[in-house]
Design a protein around this nucleic acid. Structure first.
Lengths: 122, 122
DNA sequence: CTAGCGCGCTAGGTTTACTTAGCACTGCGC
DNA sequence: GCGCAGTGCTAAGTAAACCTAGCGCGCTAG
C-alpha cells in the first residue's frame, strides 16, 4: 500500500526523538521503563524504530518525559503539524524565550541567537 | 492499576461514536472495511469496544469517515479535549523547543542544554 | 586483576491486534 | 414456497505488540 511507504521512516524519527529526550532527561532505559510500565527491551526497540508503539505506550512515554502527546503523535506521523484548531497549543520558541522571566536579558539574547542560527541557516 | 479503570469505558465510547458516524455516512461495515483496509469483523469489534485499535487503524478510520484524528483520540482517551486552562501545561520554552519541527534532534538537545544551564544553575 | 554494577541489547515466549472463512438473520424478487 | 444479496457477527488462525530472562560491554572499586 502506498500509505505504508513512509512508515518505517516515521518510526525511525519517532524513536530517535524519544531517545534524545530520554537522554536529555538523564534517564536510562530502565528508568523510563519503570516510569512508563513498559519493559526496557521494548523501549529499546521503539527507540530504534523497530516497532510501532500502541497509543497506550505512546501516552505513558509522553507523560514520563514531560512532553505533549501531540508532539509524539506528529513524530509518529499520526497527526499533521498544521492542526490549527488548537492555536493556544502552538508554541513559538521565540515568544516563549522572550516571555521567560527566569532568563536575564543577556541569556535571552544568546538563546535567541542560537535558535535563529538553527532555524535560519546561511 | 487504577489508571486502567476507565479504559473499557473509553473503548465503548470510541466504538459507539465510530458506529454512529459510519451509519451517518450510510456505510456498511464492509464499505468501511474497504475504505480503511481493515477487515470488517475487526471493525465490528472496535465499534463494540472489544479492542483498542492501533494508531494506524484509528487514522484510516478517521480519514475514511472524514473525521479529525483528534476527535477520535479524545474519544479514545488519549488526548485531552482542550488544555487552555490547564495550569500544568504552561507554554514554556522547553515545550516550544520540543515542538519545533525545524530543529533537528541534536539542535533540540543543545538548545535545551543551554536553556537548562541558564535556568537551573548547578 | 577481578568482582560488581549499570548500561543497551538479543532470544524466545505470551498477549493482543488483526485477518480469513463462514454462520445466521433480514428483506426483496420470483 | 425458493433463492440470494446484503447486513452484522463468531471462530480460528496469523502477525505484531509487548514481556521475562539473560548476555556482553564499559565502568569504578577493592
Amino acid at each position: 500500500m502506498a500509505v505504508d511507504d513512509g512508515v518505517r521512516e516515521q518510526l525511525q524519527s519517532l524513536g530517535s526523538f524519544i531517545r534524545t529526550q530520554r537522554k536529555q532527561a538523564q534517564m536510562s532505559l530502565r528508568d523510563l521503563a519503570e516510569a512508563t510500565n513498559v519493559s526496557n527491551p521494548y523501549l529499546s526497540q521503539i527507540e530504534r524504530g523497530l516497532h510501532q508503539p500502541s497509543m497506550r505506550v505512546l501516552k505513558s512515554i509522553a507523560v514520563a518525559l514531560n512532553l505533549s502527546v501531540e508532539t509524539l503523535l506528529v513524530r509518529s506521523g499520526l497527526l499533521e503539524p498544521e492542526d490549527a484548531d488548537d492555536p493556544l497549543h502552538q508554541p513559538d520558541v521565540e515568544t516563549a524565550i522572550l516571555a521567560d522571566e527566569r532568563l536575564s536579558d543577556d541569556q535571552r539574547a544568546s538563546l535567541l541567537a542560537v535558535y535563529r542560527s538553527y532555524t535560519r541557516p546561511t
